[in-house]
Amino acid sequence: MRASARLVVSLDSHGNSVVRVLRSQSPLTLVPARRVGPVALVHLVSSVTAPLGGDSLSLTVEVGPGASLELRGVAATLVLPGSSGEASSSLVRFFLEGSLRYLPEPTVVTRRANHTAVVEAELDGHAELLMREVLVLGRAGEAAGALSSSVRATRCGKPVLHQQLVVGDAFVDSSAAGLAGKRVVGTELVLDSVPRACGGGEWWSVVPLAAGGTLATALGDDVVTVTRVLDAI
């Protein structure tokens, strides 16, 4: 299945963030909340089981100057293999002159899945981005399939964060220099001008990026432990 969706949010003359363009294509279904205010809320609903092997999904989000958007998931994403054995892919692109909070639910990489996920965020000088990613290696008692998840964020064309996470190689996943045998990897990227306290513990850290912004990272055996760290920043 090939699908693309597009969402554009801008600020109106009353200071409200309003959805100007909302183009869904199953399984990428965008559901705006019926409310008026400074922050627009849209849920991203997977209206068909996706991604399956062979799927190619693409979502583009634009947030205009002064506007704010919160884009949330509603359920965990199960990455599944298809009957054909083909790989699946997703591409999410953010063009930000305003503020975006992107909070999808966890992604579970099931056995034999083969998925490539790419997020590209282009920010201008004033844009703000908060973005969470939680990856779960397999359902309970299941080995993980193959997943490559990469994030590239730039501000005014300059790189701020570029990280690719590859899971599904049992040798690397179990290595203390790979994922240390942990089943859940979570990150939260915050790009704004607010100074934040940095710190860390055994398997988590909150650190300043070289080009501005903050990244929280947590490894754990379950989603609750990992999201608790991410919630704290």
Partner: peptide, 18 residues
């Protein structure tokens, strides 16, 4: 030009300093 992250190594490096 790779972009591979190493989350566990990053956490070990941060913890080492502390």
């Amino acid at each position: 030009l790779p972009a591979l992250g190493s989350p566990a190594l990053d956490l070990l490096a941060e913890a080492h300093l502390r």
